[in-house]
């Protein structure tokens, strides 16, 4: 499986994402820069976390308007798997590839801690290595992870199984509506989530709970 990682100024989790993809797929991902207008043939595109363009204007807003995101949108429309983590999730919603918006945490504080995540839908290309309802642990580190969508959008997301990850056991760190931590698009090939599965993929991280997400998305047997 070939993968690509999108690089933008201000992202800081790109090396973690590259390490995770290299370790799990056995091949280092190619990297694409913000000004690239084409992305080579790959099976998966990852947009890592960080603070692209200093989070100026709104988190992910400026990154979402860079040329590379037009290329990501074309690939997503062609069915390529896309994962956005943290700032990557914010960029995907700002680019209109996922519905809703990510707003300031209700605590107004940056949160950096481990949370529990429920696999709300295990029947997606991102979660098929997990059991339905399984609770996994992942770190979060963000200031703007408070997911919001209007009532119609929310009903559609819930009704169509597009809510894939939910904060569990009262660990919602940001006030996100319906405890939503991660969603997919209606076609099911674009995922955005606030937690960092790439930071929990080997024993040295203190656990491997995030590994299943990459194994699922890359079609790798557990």
């Amino acid at each position: 499986m070939k993968s690509a990682v999108v690089l933008l100024p201000g992202l800081n989790r790109d090396r973690d994402m590259i390490a995770a993809l290299t370790k799990i797929s056995g091949k280092p991902p190619i990297t694409v820069w913000q000004t690239d207008t084409e992305i080579p043939d790959v099976d998966l595109i990852a947009i890592p976390g960080g603070f692209s363009f200093g989070d100026y204007l709104r988190c992910g807003a400026i990154a979402a308007r860079m040329p590379v995101m037009r290329a990501v949108a074309e690939k997503a429309a062609a069915g390529v798997t896309v994962i956005g983590v943290c700032n990557g999730f914010q960029i995907l919603v700002e680019a209109g590839l996922l519905p809703g918006a990510l707003m300031r945490n209700t605590s107004l504080k940056f949160v950096c801690r481990q949370v529990k995540l429920e696999i709300t839908n295990a029947n997606t290309m991102f979660t098929r290595r997990y059991q339905p309802g399984q609770i996994i642990r992942t770190p979060v580190a963000h200031h703007d992870g408070n997911y919001f969508a209007d009532a119609d959008t929310l009903a559609r997301l819930e009704g169509e199984g597009q809510v894939v990850f939910r904060y569990a056991d009262g660990t919602n760190p940001n006030g996100s509506i319906n405890d939503i931590a991660g969603i997919i698009n209606d076609r099911g090939n674009v995922l955005g989530l606030m937690p960092h599965p790439e930071n929990l993929i080997e024993a040295a991280h203190g656990g491997t709970d995030g590994r299943g997400l990459f194994e699922s998305a890359l079609g790798i047997a557990a």
């Binding site: 204007l57 807003a61 400026i62 919603v93 918006a101 919001f148 209007d150």
Partner: peptide
């Protein structure tokens, strides 16, 4: 519409 406002919110 294109940048300054996020019309979702």
């Amino acid at each position: 519409d294109k940048l300054l406002a996020n019309t979702v919110i």
